[in-house]
Simulated assay, not measured.
Amino acid sequence: MNADFPAVPPTADVSPAGTGLVTAEAVALDLRPARLGSRAIALGIDILMLGMVSGMVSLVAGVVLAVLPDSLVDDALVGAVMTMVIVVVLLAFPTFVETKTNGRSVGKMAMGLRVIREDGGPIRVRHAFTRALIGLTVEWPGLLLPFLTWAGSLITMIASDKGRRLGDLAAGTLVVHERRPVPFRFVPGMPAALAGWAATADLSAVDDELAAQVRQYLSRAPELSEPYNSSLLRMLAHELGTRVTPPPPPNTPPWLFLCAVLAERRRRSAAQLAAGRLVTERVLPGFGRSGRSPFPGVPVRPASPAR
Rank of each mutant, 00 (worst) to 15 (best):
P296T: 15
A205T: 05
M82C: 00
L133M: 14
T156M: 11
G79H: 09
D4W: 09
T149V: 01
G55D: 05
L145M: 15
V244H: 05
A205I: 00
P296F: 12
T83S: 13
S204E: 12
G276D: 06
V60N: 07
E178M: 09
W150N: 10
F184N: 11
A80N: 13
G241K: 08
S290C: 02
V261I: 05
E25R: 14
L31S: 00
P141N: 05
G288Y: 04
I134D: 03
P254Y: 10
R277D: 12
A198R: 09
R35N: 01
A26R: 14
R243V: 08
A24W: 12
V261T: 02
R117E: 01
R282D: 14
V60H: 06
R35M: 08
R234K: 07
V279Y: 06
F147A: 13
V176N: 08
K162I: 10
S105L: 07
E98G: 06
R185W: 05
T242E: 13
P285C: 10
W255E: 05
P183C: 02
A274N: 10
P246C: 07
V182W: 06
I41D: 04
V73E: 10
M1C: 08
A110L: 06
V88D: 02
P249Q: 12
H177I: 02
P294Q: 02
R179A: 04
T19S: 11
E178W: 00
L91R: 07
V88P: 04
S225D: 07
M1Y: 09
A28T: 11
L240I: 10
F186I: 00
P285I: 11
R282L: 15
S54R: 12
P191G: 03
A76T: 15
N2S: 12
A171N: 04
A221H: 01
A201I: 02
M109E: 11
G286E: 12
P16Q: 05
L31T: 07
L169P: 00
R268M: 05
L43R: 10
A132S: 15
A159Q: 12
M84Y: 14
G172S: 03
A24M: 11
L113V: 01
G288H: 08
E178Y: 00
R180S: 14
F257Q: 13
L144K: 04
T11S: 14
S160Q: 11
R243C: 06
N251Q: 15
R124Q: 14
P302G: 12
T149Q: 01
G297I: 11
L29N: 02
V53R: 05
V97R: 06
A306L: 11
P294K: 01
E223H: 07
E139R: 03
L90C: 08
A40F: 13
L29G: 02
V63D: 01
I116N: 00
P183I: 11
N229T: 05
A192H: 04
W140M: 15
P296E: 13
A193L: 01
T156G: 01
H238D: 12
F186L: 04
S38G: 13
I86S: 08
S231L: 14
F147N: 04
E209L: 09
G167C: 13
A80M: 15
P181M: 10
R39F: 13
L90P: 00
G196V: 15
A42W: 04
R215Y: 00
V125Q: 01
M82P: 00
